[in-house]
């Protein structure tokens, strides 16, 4: 299950990054009638302006994916560094507001931030603001657990400095946690980025954007369902596979403690 979902995620990412080169038509130029149903030349038909859906699908993932990856990496980096420090210091920081952070969906802070920031920056900022504390929490727990382990004690008994212990012993031992958490942050960022794109708060490129495609083609659902279903399916499968891999990774990291 884990392998399959990871493999699927890699295929989607690869196609997305290579996609623009593979597109059979210019994704920005109308080549069919609006919402033309699928045909031999246009397997997924045309969109609201008669642009080839397959080409837009191939070209339209890159921005969303890169944005989500950047946002997730930023959140995980901030959270991991904070979590290492908090777990090592035995801090219970954030315990008071944790349930509020869990309860308020990331879209609300993103919308509030979008008042004064450009849409893409709001996605990154909201992912960091709402996601880094969650990363911090799991990394802190894992670090606090590692702190009492024999290998950390052994490092102290050979006189290693705290920073060396954290980076050489603790971080590799708990690395599965931030790695899996990166997946969860990516899913959140993807949800956020697609939501803001659908709401028209980010500047979708002319070549298309999976989330913006959803909005453009909603009204044409009856004429060419593929124009709506294809980007929806891709977004759903990508989120599902990354989340499944991340959950499996977290279970592994916290379940057995062995990362062979």
């Amino acid at each position: 299950m884990n392998r399959v979902s990871l493999a699927f995620a890699f295929v989607v990412v690869a196609v997305t990054l290579l996609g623009p080169a593979l597109a059979p038509y210019d994704p920005a130029a109308p080549v069919t009638a609006p919402w033309q149903a699928s045909s031999v030349g246009h397997p997924l038909g045309g969109d609201v302006l008669g642009r080839d859906v397959l080409s837009r699908l191939l070209a339209g993932g890159r921005r969303l994916l890169v944005l989500s990856l950047v946002a997730a990496a930023a959140a995980t980096l901030v959270g991991t560094l904070g979590g290492l420090a908090a777990g090592w210091g035995g801090s219970r920081v954030l315990a008071a507001g944790a349930d509020l952070l869990l309860a308020v969906p990331v879209l609300l802070p993103a919308l509030v931030l979008a008042v004064s920031l450009p849409g893409d920056a709001a996605v990154v900022a909201a992912t960091v603001v709402a996601g880094a504390p969650l990363t911090l929490g799991v990394v802190r727990d894992a670090t606090a657990g590692a702190r009492e382990r024999g290998y950390v004690r052994a490092a102290r008994l050979r006189g290693e400095r705290t920073l060396a212990v954290l980076l050489r012993e603790v971080l590799p031992a708990v690395a599965g946690v931030p790695a899996a958490d990166l997946g969860l942050r990516f899913v959140t960022a993807l949800q956020l980025a697609s939501a803001l794109a659908v709401l028209g708060l980010t500047d979708a490129p002319a070549t298309g954007d999976w989330a913006a495609m959803l909005r453009e083609n909603l009204a044409g659902a009856a004429l060419n369902p593929a124009a709506l279903a294809a980007p929806a399916l891709l977004l759903a499968m990508l989120s599902l596979s990354v989340a499944a891999a991340a959950h499996a990774g977290l279970r592994h990291a916290f379940g057995t403690g062995d990362a062979s």
Binding site: S194, A195, A211, L218, A221, P225, A229, L240, A243, H247
Partner: peptide, 26 residues
């Protein structure tokens, strides 16, 4: 709880699009 947890990963816009495609489109 695997199924429910998995479903939370699906972006809400996808749910909106899928429901619209099914109930309104098809």
């Amino acid at each position: 709880g695997g199924l429910a947890t998995a479903l939370t990963a699906v972006p809400q816009v996808v749910v909106a699009a899928a429901l619209a495609a099914l109930l309104s489109g098809v």
